[in-house]
């Protein structure tokens, strides 16, 4: 990769990393995802800067002919992990809303019954 292209990759990952950091500071991302996002952003940052030469070594070692594609692989693996985590979380939220909906309906019915008993 040319120095020019390399700088682009590095700056992009740096922006992503800083953005995640900013979101975490503002508590815009919950702890559950913040840790994962930070780890992924950090991994990419290292892989695209000081770790880049080592990426070549590792890529060659595991038999990836085009080293930058090792970077892609890391990205996709990280994003896949995040999406799975997201699905698990959405499922959990769905279960919780279902229970809440049911409990709310049951409480509402009890409340109506109490009211009609005290106010004839």
């Amino acid at each position: 990769m040319q120095a020019y292209g390399h700088a682009l990759v590095f700056i992009t990952t740096l922006i992503v990393f800083l953005f995640v950091l900013w979101l975490v500071r503002r508590r815009a991302i919950g702890e559950r995802f913040a840790i994962l996002w930070l780890l992924i952003a950090l991994l990419l940052l290292v892989a695209s800067s000081v770790g880049y030469p080592y990426l070549f070594v590792i890529a060659k070692f595991v038999g990836v002919p085009y080293p930058p594609s090792a970077l892609f692989f890391l990205c996709i693996a990280g994003l896949t992990l995040l999406i799975i985590e997201l699905f698990a979380w959405v499922s959990k939220l769905n279960d919780r809303t279902r229970v809440l909906t049911q409990e709310l309906a049951m409480l509402h019915e009890r409340f109506d019954r109490e009211v009609s008993r005290t106010e004839p």
Binding site: Q102, E103, M106, E109
Partner: peptide
């Protein structure tokens, strides 16, 4: 009849389960 109104549509499973919860409680 007793009327328990779910605030949003849960589907047949969620509705019947509400009945089971009432029966349990």
């Amino acid at each position: 009849a007793r009327l328990v109104s779910l605030p949003c549509n849960l589907g047949i499973g969620g509705a019947v389960q509400t009945g089971f919860r009432i029966a349990r409680d």
